[in-house]
């Protein structure tokens, strides 16, 4: 009986991990990484839908959160609020060098990077902007982390 229950839970976890839905938050990005995410890495050419990924319009539907940009002071509260709207379990991915260190904006008074001071970041994808292949690899790693959390 317990083994049956265990098998059921591992099976449902395996199936659930095949359906990671993605939501993007722009935390004051220059739009370079957003272009890489939205129009290069996650479009038909590289087809992350075969991993089960789907872009969702609402943070409440999301499982994996991609955050771009150096977290400017002006958007900080909004970013944290939208991040809280994503239901658990979730995985956070920082895309580009900006959320990691601030990148070329690191000395600005208006920039609060690194992002990990405010949010638990699970995967970093460095680059300015990262290559589509790097973003897809980052998402694949995020899926592996997400499977553990389910």
């Amino acid at each position: 009986m317990t083994s049956l229950k265990q098998m059921f839970s591992t099976q449902t976890r395996r199936m659930a991990s095949l359906s990671p839905w993605i939501y993007r938050i722009n935390a004051g990005s220059c739009n370079g990484c957003d272009v890489e995410c939205a129009t290069t890495a996650l479009i038909p050419r590289y087809d992350v839908e075969r991993l089960g990924c789907q872009y969702c319009g609402s943070p409440r539907h999301a499982d994996i959160v991609l955050i771009t940009g150096p977290l400017t002071a002006r958007v900080k509260d909004s970013v944290l609020r939208v991040y809280d709207e994503v239901p658990e379990p979730k995985v956070t991915v920082a895309v580009g060098v900006c959320p990691i260190s601030g990148g070329i904006f690191r000395d600005s008074y208006a920039v609060l990077a690194p992002l990990s001071k405010y949010l638990p970041v699970d995967v970093n994808i460095p680059g300015c902007a990262p290559r589509p292949q790097a973003i897809i690899e980052g998402i694949a790693q995020a899926i592996a982390i997400w499977r553990e959390r389910l």
């Binding site: 449902t12 199936m15 659930a16 095949l18 359906s19 239901p87 658990e88 379990p89």
Partner: peptide, 13 residues
Amino acid sequence: FYDLVKLAKKRTM
């Protein structure tokens, strides 16, 4: 089917 199983495991807010 995978999407449904996933949604069943998430939290409703």
